Computed example of a mutant assay.
Amino acid sequence: MLRSSYPVLCAGDVAASAEFYREHFGFEATFESDWYVSLRHPATSSELAILDPTHESMPAGYGTVARGVLVNLELDDVDAVAARLEAAGVPVVQSLRSEPFGQRHIIVRDPGGVLVDVITEIAPSPEFLAAFRRDA
């Protein structure tokens, strides 16, 4: 039986990436070394980890920094968080906007190059409302 699931993001500067998630989103370290940091959010128990891609635990040929990864973080007030991220100089990849599929969001980049989609759910348009499963 599955006990947990969480992303492990490869980053060239593990400490900087871990600090990004602590400072801007309130994650706390549950394990910390120079090559791996495990993070958990105290309010939701959501987890993620940061790994040095050159560490010996990585299979040969896979020691690259994360690319093509989008981490979604759903929050209560994306507008306030977006203003705080922009004021802190966090690189914005996509400006704050509302989507017809039911999200208001901003996409930023963490120090390791991973895209972070910061989201608040909003009512979807009628065309997208039909795509949502009522029993889910």
Rank of each mutant, 00 (worst) to 15 (best):
A15F: 09
A82C: 13
R97H: 13
M58D: 02
E23V: 09
R84E: 15
S4T: 13
A87M: 07
E86C: 11
R3I: 12
G26S: 10
V81S: 13
D52E: 12
P111W: 06
L9M: 00
L70G: 05
L129G: 10
G89A: 01
L75M: 10
L115K: 08
L48D: 00
L39S: 00
V14G: 06
E74A: 10
V81N: 02
Q94T: 13
P126T: 03
G61S: 14
V92A: 02
S95N: 13
T54I: 02
G63W: 11
A11T: 08
R109T: 10
G63A: 09
L51N: 06
S95F: 12
G68I: 07
V8N: 07
R97Y: 11
E32S: 15
H41P: 00
E28A: 11
G61R: 09
D110L: 10
Y6V: 00
I106L: 10
D34K: 04
P124C: 02
L51H: 09
P126A: 13
E56N: 05
A18Q: 09
S4R: 15
Q94S: 15
G112R: 04
G61F: 13
D117S: 09
E127C: 00
W35D: 10
N72S: 14
A131Y: 12
R3E: 12
A123V: 15
S125A: 14
V108H: 08
R67W: 12
F31E: 08
A29D: 03
R97M: 13
C10P: 13
G63I: 07
V71F: 03
M58E: 09
